[in-house]
């Protein structure tokens, strides 16, 4: 039981940490920092160091080459589209789950998390089988509308929609649940139509959550690999996503190039994490009103 009696005294100065009678701070923080450092920060540093071998100019040239830029466009553009689709339908699903009662509601509620739980490779081959020109959904779409989904940008958007849906539903749902009924009732009693109430009372209250869900879904889409590669055509400039480009560069012995693209993606991740934190603060402050 040395745990209690051996606090890291150096860390116990009030400047760094508020005093507490609870034990184990030194041990747990030490373990947390070393685990985090060895398994996450050190490897990420290796990535940045490798890319740093290019120098600023080299790095800039590497990540602004036409093929990389095109992949950025594909990844960001289609993630944006998918996040938009999710914002609309995710909102709809959240609305229906919270506001209406229908048979099987709880089952549907549970099913929404499927994309979190289903391995991405399984999602990838399943979607690819469904939307291929001879698949259950792909064939009618192809025969009736001449619309090709698999191996085109639409296919990527479909996969990213699948992956990102729960983010929107699960961010909007709790906020919608806690929405106080008084404001809606007040609006109605003041003579507002249901649609007016929706847009002037409900939407503003849900907007932060909706934007946060959108951003989460978007962020996930940009990095997604497993579910996309099976259904994407992988054509440079057209259906080649960023993560695939990293893999391709790696396969061509271009370690530095793939590290450069990886670092660029990492920077983007940082940026999105920052934006998300700000969004969540916004959401909390709005919600706490």
């Amino acid at each position: 039981m040395t745990v209690i009696n051996a606090p890291a005294t150096a860390l116990r100065q009030p400047f760094f940490k508020k005093p507490s009678i609870l034990p184990g701070f030194g041990l747990t923080l030490g373990f947390t920092l070393s685990y985090l450092g060895v398994l996450v920060l050190l490897p990420l540093a290796a990535l940045v160091v490798k890319a740093g071998g290019l120098g600023w100019v080299g790095f800039w040239t590497a990540v602004t080459s036409p093929r990389v830029l095109a992949a950025f466009q594909v990844s960001f553009g289609l993630s944006f589209v998918a996040a938009l689709v999710n914002a609309v339908f995710g909102f709809l699903v959240a609305w229906v789950l919270v506001r209406y009662d229908f048979p099987g509601r709880r089952l549907v509620d549970a099913l929404v998390d499927l994309p979190f739980a289903l391995p991405t490779a399984v999602a990838g081959i399943a979607l690819s089988a469904l939307y291929a020109p001879n698949g259950w959904v792909g064939k009618p779409l192809n025969d009736l509308f001449g619309l090709k989904v698999a191996f085109t940008p639409i296919g990527i958007a479909v996969a990213l929609t699948f992956i990102g849906l729960p983010f929107v539903v699960r961010t909007v749902q709790p906020i919608l649940q806690d929405l106080p009924p008084e404001e809606e009732e007040a609006a109605a009693s003041l003579g507002a139509s249901r649609l007016q109430t929706f847009f002037s009372v409900i939407m503003p209250a849900l907007l932060p959550a909706l934007v946060t869900g959108f951003a989460l879904s978007f962020a996930r889409g940009v990095g997604e690999y497993g579910s996309v590669i099976f259904i994407a055509g992988n054509m440079p400039g057209l259906t080649e996503i960023l993560p695939l480009l990293i893999v391709i560069k790696l396969e061509q012995y271009d370690y530095v190039g793939s590290a450069a693209v990886g670092t660029a993606m990492l920077l983007v991740s940082f940026l999105m994490l920052l934006v998300l934190n700000l969004l969540q603060q916004w959401m909390r402050s709005r919600h706490a009103r």
């Binding site: 690819s128 291929a132 020109p133 001879n134 698999a150 191996f151 085109t152 055509g233 992988n234 054509m235 440079p236 259906t239 080649e240 893999v247 391709i248 396969e251």
Partner: peptide, 18 residues
């Protein structure tokens, strides 16, 4: 229309995905 990363992927695209 599609560039698979290996020959087998391309064959699957052609034969199986038509």
């Amino acid at each position: 229309p599609v560039l698979d990363s290996g020959a087998r992927g391309a064959t699957v695209t052609f034969t199986q995905r038509e």
